[in-house]
Amino acid sequence: MRKTLTWGLTAAQWALLVLVALPVAVFSVWAMVDNTRLYFVTLLNGLTLASLYFIVASGFTLVFGLMRNVNLAHGSLYLLGGYVGFVVAERTGWWILAIAAGFLAAAIAGLLIQVLILRHMQGQDLRQTMVTIGLSIVIADLLLWGFTGQVHQMEAPQWLHGPIRGLPVVNAYSAYRLSLLGFGIAIGVFLWWLLSRTRVGAMIRAGVDDRAMLSAAGVNVNLVFAVTFMLGAGLAGFGGVIGAVEFSMVPGEDTRLLLASLIVVIVGGMGSVVGAAIGAVILGLAETYGLAYAPTYSVVFTFLILILVLAFRPRGIMGRAA
């Protein structure tokens, strides 16, 4: 057992804490004094962005954790869900229907991908990943063909229109953007309930721990895989619909969200939903504070975080050892 200092942390962990937490604390104090409103608005921006990243990344991490499949078509499913949601919202005028439609469209696409293609390559992780790369290119181009490069901006529902006024310190903040935070928390709670309180969740968790044992225990592994892939893809589609309001739907969104999911999952740990939440918060805050205080260097912060995590904890913050 390594020697622990105060609070049960080793010397190395203390060093890391000081290295990271101290500059952040110093910066926060300076920023709060300099322009309080900007600091807290940026905090909210970061948390709401993190919620969107969390929703999309949680699907990604579930699929990887259970099936060891890096689904690089995840971004395209986000785009698919967004476009389908836009069309439904335009036709029916109901935002709730649009969300359901986006979720279902992406889930069905995910199911088809899993059953028709990926199931036949079980065990060949590399080949599966390359198939998803090819699928992402094809799906993205089909969507470009169908919807053209025109900007599709979805409308927020009436009750989320406009700013909320009268907030302390920040004065006014976009109601819809704040609701993203609510969605993120709701999805987090739902996933926690699913994974820890239902049979399906128990099977998923068992599969993440030890796939071979799960099969040996008599569970229909193919079914569990299909359900998980559907759920993961559906989450991407759901994220697409709610993201279509805040950031419109254009070709190129798929790459952006895929990259965000990758970084969130690398930082937070593969296969861990809690890790996805932590990673999303870190990434969201880093991005928004970077954009607000040092726009030309914001990506350097993301880079630095990525490199720090990979150097000291290659499996991610909540990643488990193989």
Partner: peptide
């Protein structure tokens, strides 16, 4: 002058400034 990257979609921080 706020110069934003081409294709950057998140203007919340710029608006805050």
């Amino acid at each position: 002058k706020a110069w934003v990257p081409l294709g950057g979609k998140d203007y919340a921080s710029t608006i805050a400034r």
